[in-house]
């Protein structure tokens, strides 16, 4: 399994969060949205200008700017679709 950051995930790919590299208020906000290690996350849609990207997390769709996504470490899920 390959480790990388969330901003490198492409459309409709699913991954699992492994670590958060942000801190302070931003880290807390990510966690409030349900982005904690172990959370499955998937790219739902990309803004017309390429940034931000909206992710499906715990049943809701949340848009993050690229710089925030770059601070979230993930591992790719196996190819098959596991997302409900």
């Amino acid at each position: 399994m390959e480790t990388r950051t969330l901003d490198t995930l492409s459309r409709h790919q699913t991954a699992v969060v492994t670590a958060l590299h942000s801190d302070g208020a931003e880290r807390r906000r990510m966690m409030d949205l349900g982005i904690v290690p172990g959370t499955a996350i998937r790219v739902e849609m990309v803004s017309p200008l390429g940034d931000p990207v909206a992710y499906l997390v715990r049943g809701s769709v949340v848009a993050l700017r690229r710089e925030q996504a770059a601070k979230i470490e993930i591992t790719l899920q196996p190819a098959e679709e596991t997302q409900p």
Partner: peptide, 9 residues
């Protein structure tokens, strides 16, 4: 109800 898990937080 559609986003129960996140709301349970």
């Amino acid at each position: 109800a559609t986003r129960l898990e996140r709301n349970l937080n």
